[in-house]
Structures are given as structure tokens and as C-alpha cells.
Design a protein around this nucleic acid. Structure first.
Length: 435
DNA sequence: ATCACGGTTTGCA
DNA sequence: CTAACGTGCAAACCGTGAT
């Protein structure tokens, strides 16, 4: 039977992704790390979240706890960094603003990935264009990126995976330019778990029913799989067949809930310590809340001991504290969170983590008026929003925490571990050392 | 039975 | 020296009480 080539797709979506982002950022400022095995650890120096190729080759998995790797690390001279989010965020901003020059439509998907819509550039060779992107990011920022192109976001992701894993693509893979035969050959070699949205739980389940490769999923019929799994699965199948189900989101979608949580560097047993940390997390969450111009109606606060330590009693609890009036002001949000915290706190436990969630979020302009509220109260409220915005601006310019509530404490002994953090090369003068 | 709800679990990146 | 395991989001799920 004759193999027909697919119809020329009318869309071209590119997914640009920085290789081993955090590790690559460290290497920009410390070129001696080039060619050496390097990992960057998660908050609290907990798990490996970014690995150089040398580290991946040693079989170290994403998210593996660092303490389990100490021996291996010593043996192979692995260099481990604490995560330096100020540096990575700044590098990310630089990369994204350059990438934005390559298309009028950009979705910043994560700290190191973005989609560009190239559909308008019909007369351009997209593979060449991808190479230009790579070259410019390398030259202007010093970071290595790969480019994947396809007719949907899921295909662009898959193309990016191919570009990353197979040197013959030289960092750019455009699935739109593939013949059906070539695409089939590649898809049959890709494990179904590599597809965007198929994670470590779904992949084995699909394997069980005989769907092992990207090709198997592409040619599977959507409706029974939707029944067996979910509507998300059906969308994935349609997407890898070239039907767009996931649109490019240029505006950051406003969140329905905002969470801020952190593990402690050392266990915390006393209430004041927990109060300080909860206070800080509320501050972070409230900053995010105001950035997306929302107000919150419920503050959820939770604490827990370590779930990994079998030698001590486990305790975890949380409470939802409704606010009488929705707000974005740190002061009442903190009050509510601390009130909740005192309700769930039990003495005699070694707490390992605390967190807050802001929910019942609505846009600032739809602020719900209380039945018993006078207009003057809303004026007061508007002023408080204004004041919080000014505080945000000062903190943005002078550094986080320049103005904050005293309830956050000053010594913060529970602060997370960061044993080996690199300097804030691009954001903090005082951390730069001239040699 | 069915629905709305809230809290909990699952899953992904 | 020892002990040590991230975060943020949405969707699915599930039990409950009201209708």
C-alpha cells in the first residue's frame, strides 16, 4: 500500500528548552565546571533537580535524594550546588526576552521553556530559524538550548525531546518537515512515557494494555482510552495526531490557588518558630496574589512532621480559615494563618514542614462588598491595596524582605539548608568578589 | 438517585 | 560526627448531607 504523506500542517509551534538549565547557568559563570559532573540540589539541599550529562550518564535520577548519592558523588567527584533561584530567574528573564524577538506570540511555560508560534513565517525554513535561535541564545547569554517544532504543543514537546536525545538533529527537530515514514520510524522508537502528560503512573498502565511507544498511542482510538483514563488522555492522542487541543496561552492564566511551603533546615518543635515560617510563607503567597491582581477568601495553613522518619510519631494537620472579607493585604492574611496555626499546633512533635494555601481567589476589581459595609470601608480597602503595592515595589527594588512583618522573625533558625550556593552573579553586587 | 460541596489523593513537571 | 527526601499547580476522586 502506498504511504501517503500527511497534509501540510497549517501550524508550526516551537518549544525551546534550555539544556540542564540550572547546571548550565552555573557553568556560564564558572566555566571550569564544563565537562565535569555537576548537580544542582532542590530547596534544603534535598534532591537532585538538575543534572549535567556526565551525572545523567552515572545513572543518577531526577529527584533522587542527595544523601543517597553521597558515596557515588565522592567516587566520581560530583560537584553539587544549592539552588540559586535569584540567578536562575534572572537568566530566565534574559533568555525569554530574546526568544520573544523571534515571534509575536510567545508562551512562557516554565523557568526554562517557552513556546513560540511560528505559523506566520510560512516562507521561512523553520529548521534554519531554529538554528538561529540556538546560536543567538548561546552567543548572547551563553546557554545551550534545543528547539522542537510541530503542529501542536504536544508534538513540539516531542520534537524537542528528539532534538535533545539525538545528536544528528544538531539541536533542532522539525516534525512538520518529516515524511510519514520518517515520523513513524521515530515514533516507534519513543517510549510512550516521553510524551507530555504521560508520567510515571500512566506510562506503566499504558504498557500493560500494550501501548508501549508514541506510535502505539498515536494510532490508538481515543474514545475507549478516554473511558479507561480521562479526557486528558484523549486530548493527548488528538494532539499527537496534529489536532490542537491545547492552545498557546500568552497571558499567564490567573491561578485558582496559590501555595507557598518549605521544608525546614532543622526540625522545629516550638510554636514561635512555626509562626515565623508561616508568616514568611504568607508574605510570599500574598506577593504572588497581588502580582496576578487577585484577592483571597480563604487561607489554608498546614504543618507536618517528616513522613520519612519511622522512628518518630507522624503528625500532619491543616485548617481552612475563611476571611470575613476577601483581601490581598498581608496583615489580615497573616492574622488568619497564625490563628489557624494555633488551632492545629500540637506540642511534642518535630515539625519538618509548614505551608499556606490561598484559595477562593477572585480578581481585585470584583471585590465582594459586605452587606454591612459602608463605602468608606471600601476606600480604606483600596488604600491598603495601594500601600501593599508600594511595599512590593520597594522590596522589588531594594531586595526581598526590606519591608516585612516582624512576625517573620529575624534569626530564622529554621531556614532551609543551602550549603553550597553560588553568588547572585547578576543580581547582588555584594556577593561579587573581585579577584 | 442525584447533586453540590469540601477535603483528600493523584499526577505531572 | 549524624541524619538527612522539593514545590506548585490542577484534576480526579470520594464521602457526605441535602433534595
Amino acid at each position: 500500500m502506498e504511504m501517503l504523506n500527511p497534509p501540510i500542517p497549517n501550524r508550526a509551534i516551537a518549544l525551546i528548552d534550555v539544556n540542564n538549565f540550572y547546571v548550565s547557568c552555573e557553568r556560564v559563570f564558572n566555566p571550569k565546571l564544563e565537562g565535569k559532573p555537576v548537580v544542582v540540589l532542590s530547596n534544603n539541599d534535598g534532591c537532585a533537580v538538575a543534572r549535567s550529562n556526565e551525572v545523567k550518564a552515572l545513572g543518577i535520577k531526577m529527584g533522587q535524594p542527595w544523601f543517597q548519592l553521597k558515596d557515588l558523588a565522592r567516587k566520581h567527584g560530583i560537584i553539587a550546588y544549592s539552588s540559586n533561584y535569584a540567578l536562575y530567574a534572572d537568566m530566565s528573564n534574559r533568555v525569554m526576552s530574546i526568544l520573544g524577538m523571534f515571534s509575536p506570540e510567545q508562551e512562557i511555560y516554565s523557568i526554562d521553556e517557552c513556546f513560540l508560534d511560528l505559523s506566520g513565517f510560512k516562507r521561512l525554513n523553520h529548521t534554519d530559524y531554529g538554528q538561529q535561535i540556538r546560536q543567538r541564545i548561546k552567543q548572547w547569554i551563553g546557554l545551550p538550548v534545543c528547539v522542537g517544532i510541530g503542529s501542536t504543543k504536544t508534538l513540539a514537546k516531542l520534537a524537542n525531546h528528539l532534538a535533545k536525545k539525538n545528536p544528528e538533529f544538531n539541536g533542532v527537530c522539525d516534525l512538520n518537515s518529516f515524511s510519514l515514514k520518517r515520523q513513524t520510524d521515530w515514533f516507534q522508537r519513543i517510549d510512550v512515557g516521553e510524551i507530555w502528560g504521560i508520567g510515571r503512573r500512566l506510562a506503566p498502565k499504558l504498557h500493560e494494555i500494550g501501548i508501549k511507544t508514541a506510535w502505539d498511542l498515536k494510532t490508538a482510538s481515543p474514545s475507549p482510552l478516554r473511558a479507561r483514563f480521562s479526557v486528558v488522555m484523549e486530548k493527548i492522542i488528538r494532539e499527537i495526531n496534529g489536532t490542537a487541543c491545547i492552545e498557546l496561552e500568552e497571558l499567564h492564566p490567573t491561578r485558582k490557588q496559590i501555595l507557598s511551603s518549605r521544608s525546614f533546615g532543622v526540625p522545629v518543635a516550638d510554636l514561635p518558630g512555626l509562626e515565623e515560617s508561616v508568616s514568611l510563607y504568607i508574605n510570599r503567597a500574598a506577593e504572588k496574589l497581588r502580582r496576578q491582581q487577585s484577592i483571597a477568601g480563604v487561607v489554608y495553613v498546614y504543618i507536618r512532621t517528616s513522613p520519612f522518619n519511622p522512628r518518630q510519631r507522624y503528625y500532619a494537620n491543616g485548617i481552612a480559615v475563611p476571611l470575613s472579607m476577601q483581601t490581598d493585604n498581608t496583615v489580615p492574611l497573616t492574622k488568619a494563618a497564625l490563628w489557624g496555626l494555633r488551632r492545629i499546633y500540637r506540642r511534642g512533635y518535630q515539625y519538618q514542614k509548614a505551608g499556606v494555601i490561598l484559595s477562593e481567589l477572585t480578581p481585585q476589581q470584583y471585590r465582594q462588598l459586605n452587606l454591612f459595609e459602608s463605602t468608606s470601608t471600601t476606600e480604606v480597602d483600596k488604600k491598603s491595596t495601594k500601600m501593599m503595592n508600594i511595599i512590593d515595589q520597594i522590596n522589588a527594588r531594594m531586595g526581598r524582605g526590606t519591608i516585612r512583618l516582624a512576625s517573620e522573625g529575624f534569626k530564622q533558625p529554621w531556614k532551609m539548608k543551602q550549603g553550597n550556593k553560588s553568588p547572585g552573579y547578576t543580581t547582588k553586587w555584594e556577593e561579587l568578589v573581585c579577584v
